[in-house]
């Protein structure tokens, strides 16, 4: 490998003097292999099992399971599934809305916190609080707050003489409300990553910008954002994947309704797999979603490669 460094010195090294192989390599692989096999087993086997199950129908009789091969019938049925189409659309809308909100807010809060000279630890603790709460608590809390009959938000609106709003029961508002709750829940995650990134930025670049007379906006536009780009990209991918998997908030707040207004893919898989006990079809649906997530990650990686050099 040293030959490929491109340095003249390295190129001058005669080929016959290069060690053909690292004598410790075998031992290192042998030592690593149990862990690698375990990791591969734990990571790959369930996915392979899921892929295989997607080609079968599972029935139970006399206490025993019966597997019937159905080929690609489950995948063909996905296209006609009234819930799956709505779920994909809603999940995309949800993921884009929630991640955009979380990243914008998280970045703004991180900028403010990084510039705070006093009480930085306190603000940091306050801002990360929502991400520490379990999903079930968040669901219960927001469901109560958004209740138009006796919720805190309705009471607050009442103080200003405004009528209560049916946040979760109105088909036009329900998805927006769930996005709001998700933004509240996960903004601290973005905030933490952005704050860590901001605090690691080199100070001398800012000092140089100041010497050059850069305004605050110019400093943000031409110094902070370019330097923060890798952190932003990683945060975006993390959050996008997590947002695509949203389940608990939808399950607790709306149950996918009203109608299909808040149906998301994880919830649809749960219904098909567990509530309706359609293991084969649920597996096919899961594989389709895994494929979509891979596509999304590939697109994100390609975008990152294209944008990063600029």
């Amino acid at each position: 490998m040293s030959l490929a460094t491109g340095t003249g010195a390295a190129l001058a090294v005669p080929a016959q003097r290069v060690r053909p192989a690292d004598p410790d390599a075998l031992w290192r692989w042998a030592a690593l292999s149990p862990a690698l096999l375990l990791m591969l087993g734990l990571g790959l086997l369930p996915v392979l099992n899921l892929v295989a199950l997607g080609f079968f129908d599972v029935h139970w009789a006399e206490g025993q399971s019966e597997l019937r091969f159905v080929g690609t019938a489950h995948y063909a049925a996905l296209a006609k599934d009234p819930l799956f189409g709505s779920a994909i659309l809603n999940t995309v809308v949800f993921a884009i809305g929630a991640v955009a909100g979380q990243m914008g807010l998280g970045f703004a809060l991180a900028l403010l916190c990084s510039k705070a000279t006093r009480g930085r630890t306190f603000w940091r603790a306050v801002f990360i609080l929502p991400v520490l709460l379990p999903g079930i608590v968040i669901g219960a809390m927001w469901k109560l707050m958004m209740n138009p009959d006796f919720g805190a938000i309705a009471q607050l609106l009442d103080l200003f003489g405004l009528p209560p709003v049916d946040w979760l029961g109105n088909a036009r508002l329900a998805l927006f409300s769930v996005v709001l709750v998700d933004i509240w829940h996960w903004t601290p995650f973005c905030f933490l990553l952005f704050l860590a990134g901001l605090e690691a930025l080199p100070r001398d670049v800012y000092e140089a910008a100041k010497v050059d007379g850069a305004s605050t906006w110019q400093e943000l536009r031409y110094v902070t954002l370019p330097l923060m780009w890798p952190t932003i990209a990683v945060t975006f991918v993390f959050r996008l994947v997590l947002a695509f998997k949203v389940f608990d908030e939808v399950y607790l707040l709306t149950g996918g309704g009203p109608g299909t207004a808040t149906e998301v893919v994880s919830f649809t898989i749960y219904l098909r797999f567990f509530t309706q006990d359609r293991a084969g079809y649920g597996a096919a649906m899961s594989v389709a979603v895994i494929f979509l997530i891979f596509l999304m990650l590939a697109a994100a990686a390609a975008t990152r490669r294209r944008v990063q050099p600029a």
Binding site: P82, L83, G169, G257, P258, G259, T260, Q276
Partner: peptide
């Protein structure tokens, strides 16, 4: 599951 979705959509006015 079919009934739940269809009836809910009807009640919601969809």
């Amino acid at each position: 599951a079919v009934l739940e979705l269809g009836l809910n959509r009807a009640v919601a006015g969809e």
